[in-house]
Structure formats: structure tokens, C-alpha cells
């Protein structure tokens, strides 16, 4: 017998109407909305934790330069593990098991590389004479970090957050495979039931969420940088 790809079988059994809006309306409160909220939760918590780890790490390794290559190497190693494999490994770890926590840990692991790298790049982009002037006027190291370096590094850091956000929202869909919830749940259920409406709803919402988050962050970054906008400079 000839090999028939699974997708082909799926297509053959599709109902004539690919998008069943009636289903969406009827199941919005029960299935769609919780999946969307779950997805926002997974991505949001993951990004928050990833930022809480990456920002201080980035600031530290930007100072202690010797630590930068090994940190980037480790974060890069995490980044290369296939997501499905990472989920599977985490599920077997005692105390984590199946569920959203395993998904969040994986998403955090994926975000660290880009967030640390962009934090360091952002801090490196601060003009040295600006820091020198700040020191010369008697700002403490702390004041220089929070009032001068981080605000000026912000555009590059936010650029990293945008990449991480889009990545995390995408990978989070796979989390449903280990009972993480989120929009992936709609997709996997749709595959199980051979019901394209669910697949399309899940995929479309995940895409829309990623685009919305990206645009939202872009607008936020512009707002936080009136000086660049007014001067008509860099982006």
C-alpha cells in the first residue's frame, strides 16, 4: 500500500465548509476565550520571568565582560533544543510534570538568549561620553544605570522583547501537547476531531496575538523615546 501523508487524509475528510462561524459563536465563552486567555497568560508570565532573569544578567555580564561569552553560549545551547523535545524532557523532571509550568519554563529558556544579548547590545550602544559626563557631575553608579544607561539602552532592549514575544507566542501553541492550555488546545482538538474551524480559529488568534503584541511594543517603545522621534533620528 502506498504511503499517504496524514495531512492528505485530513484534507480528504474535511467538511465542505472549512470555517463554521456558528461553532465559534456558540463556543466562544466556553472554549475560544479561555484558550486565548490561557495563551496570554502562558506568554505573559514567561516573558515576565525571562525579563526578570535576563535584564540583571545582561547588566552584570555587560560589566564583567569575561562572563558574557559563557552566558551567551549556555543561553544559545538552550535555544537550540527542539521545543517538543524540551517539553518532553521537562515533563519527566520531578516537581514539574505535565501542565503549564513545564511550558513556562521552556518558554523562559527560549527567551533568555535574545533578551540577554539585546540588553548587552543596548548598554554597549550608550555613548561613553554621556556616561563620562554623568560620572563627572557626581551621579552614583546606580543613578547612572537607571537614569542614563537603561533609558538609552531601551530601544535595543525592547527590540529584543519584541522578538522574544513573537517567538514565545508561537512556541506556546505547542505547549497544549503537554496540557499547558492556550490556543494550541484549539488546534490539537481540531486535529483530533478533524474539525478545521477549531484549527483555523486557534492559528488565526495566535497570529493576531503575536502581531498585536509586536505592534503594541513598537508603539510603547516610540512613546518611551520622544527624543528620537522629535529629532527625526533612528527609527
Amino acid at each position: 500500500m502506498e504511503f499517504v501523508p496524514a495531512g492528505f487524509v485530513l484534507l480528504q475528510q474535511l467538511e465542505p465548509r472549512i470555517m463554521d462561524w456558528g461553532w465559534v459563536r456558540e463556543n466562544f465563552a466556553e472554549d475560544v476565550l479561555p484558550a486565548l486567555v490561557g495563551h496570554v497568560y502562558l506568554s505573559g508570565v514567561s516573558l515576565a520571568i525571562a525579563l526578570a532573569i535576563s535584564l540583571p544578567t545582561g547588566v552584570l555580564v555587560a560589566r564583567y565582560r569575561k562572563a558574557y561569552p559563557p552566558v551567551v553560549f549556555l543561553a544559545g545551547l538552550l535555544f537550540t533544543i527542539p521545543s517538543l523535545a524540551l517539553f518532553a524532557i521537562l515533563v519527566t523532571v520531578p516537581g514539574i510534570g505535565i501542565g503549564p509550568n513545564a511550558v513556562i519554563i521552556a518558554l523562559v529558556a527560549y527567551s533568555i538568549l535574545v533578551l540577554v544579548r539585546n540588553t548587552v547590545a543596548g548598554l554597549d550602544s550608550v555613548p561613553p561620553e554621556t556616561i563620562d559626563a554623568a560620572r563627572g557631575m557626581g551621579l552614583t553608579a546606580r543613578q547612572i544605570l537607571f537614569k542614563v544607561e537603561l533609558p538609552l539602552a531601551l530601544p535595543v532592549i525592547v527590540a529584543g522583547v519584541r522578538i522574544a514575544t513573537v517567538t514565545v507566542i508561537g512556541i506556546a501553541t505547542i505547549g497544549a501537547y503537554i496540557a499547558g492550555g492556550g490556543l494550541g488546545q484549539l488546534i490539537f482538538d481540531g486535529i483530533d476531531r478533524l474539525f478545521p474551524t477549531m484549527i483555523i480559529t486557534g492559528a488565526a488568534l495566535a497570529t493576531a496575538l503575536a502581531v498585536a503584541a509586536d505592534v503594541g511594543l513598537l508603539l510603547l517603545e516610540r512613546r518611551l523615546r520622544p527624543w528620537a522621534r522629535r529629532a527625526g533620528g533612528q527609527g
Binding site: P127, A133, M137
Partner: peptide, 30 residues
Amino acid sequence: ATELRRKIGYAIQQIGLFPHRTIAENVGTV
């Protein structure tokens, strides 16, 4: 050192204004 520096005005060679602060905020730093 920080207390000392707040008592000594210093205009560095490369100017080094804070790009993210207005002129008023720059001048009002110390």
C-alpha cells in the same frame, strides 16, 4: 567622590549631553 564632583562643574571635551533629556533637564542635572 560623588559629593566632590557635585561641587565642581565639569564640561567634558565631548560635551556628553544626555540625549534622552531635554535641554532644561540636562542643565538641571546637578
